[in-house]
Amino acid sequence: MSGPTLATAQEAGAPQLLPYELPDPATLERPKLDFTPTPQDEADFDKFFYFHREGTSFPEAYADVRECDALASGSSIYLGGNSGALAGATAQYGVLAAGIGSAVGSLLADAIFGSAARRQQRRINLRNCMGFKGYQRYGLSGDLWKKFNFEEGLGRKKEGERDDALEIQALVASGPKPTAKELGL
């Protein structure tokens, strides 16, 4: 017996994915990439960077950027929950109080530490994926980077904003070769 087909999924009312139509790259505004890095900028190149690969078309770069974004965004790090403090609080104050305290403490720890860990993990995964695909990495100032990139730590970017940023990242990745120094992955 075969599995469900697209037709049976549509009949069952399953949501349908619409094809994504890339814009003409000529209609996109290329971001400013040239700047004179300060020592602080250089110290932050592990956070603020962009990719480029010579001879890559815009659609190919978009497919690569989107795939690597999906892989990098799929990772999650959540802290909290398993500690001796929970066992001690349960014994002294009861299950409900310990559970509430643990939940609040875990939420606070995750908001403080988990967000930064997720952002760092996403950057590393993105660098590994794009490097595997043959892209070079170049440093950028934080202000310039924020104009066409995003960070996720406490939640996922809305798809429209995400798609807009990924289009510009693909434009840069497939555009003229940067004059800046290549960074290692």
Rank of each mutant, 00 (worst) to 15 (best):
L183F: 00
L79E: 04
F132R: 15
Q169A: 06
P15E: 12
I124T: 14
G74R: 11
V95H: 06
R123W: 12
Q92D: 07
F35Y: 09
G142A: 13
A85L: 08
S141G: 09
F58M: 11
T36A: 14
G99P: 01
L79K: 07
G155I: 10
Q120P: 07
P37I: 07
T8R: 01
D64A: 13
G114C: 09
P59S: 05
L79A: 08
L108I: 13
E152R: 11
R119F: 09
F132Y: 09
A111C: 08
F150L: 07
E29T: 15
S76R: 15
E182D: 12
G114T: 05
L17T: 12
P23F: 11
N82D: 12
F45Q: 03
S115W: 05
Q40M: 11
A165M: 11
L183D: 10
F51P: 09
Q92V: 15
F113A: 12
G80C: 05
A103G: 01
Y78A: 09
L79Q: 06
C129Q: 00
T179G: 15
L171W: 05
T90E: 07
G105L: 02
P31F: 07
F132G: 14
R119P: 03
W145V: 09
E42R: 14
Q120T: 15
A117G: 07
T56V: 12
Q169L: 06
T8S: 02
K147V: 01
D44H: 03
N149F: 01
G134F: 04
K133H: 03
G134R: 07
I112D: 04
L96M: 10
A70F: 08
G13M: 02
E29P: 04
Y62Q: 05
R127Q: 08
A103T: 00
D46I: 06
E29Y: 01
Y50S: 04
P23R: 07
P39L: 02
A103S: 02
A87V: 08
Q136Y: 00
L18G: 10
P25Y: 03
A97K: 05
A43D: 09
G155V: 10
G13N: 01
R66I: 03
G134Q: 09
K146T: 15
G139H: 06
D163N: 15
A70V: 13
G155S: 10
L185V: 14
P178T: 14
L183N: 11
N82M: 13
D41E: 09
Y62S: 06
A63H: 09
Q136W: 02
A97L: 06
I100D: 00
A70W: 08
A173L: 02
V172N: 06
S106A: 13
S75T: 13
T27E: 12
G175W: 00
M1L: 14
C129K: 00
A180K: 12
G3A: 12
K181I: 14
K146A: 11
Q136P: 00
F49R: 02
G160K: 14
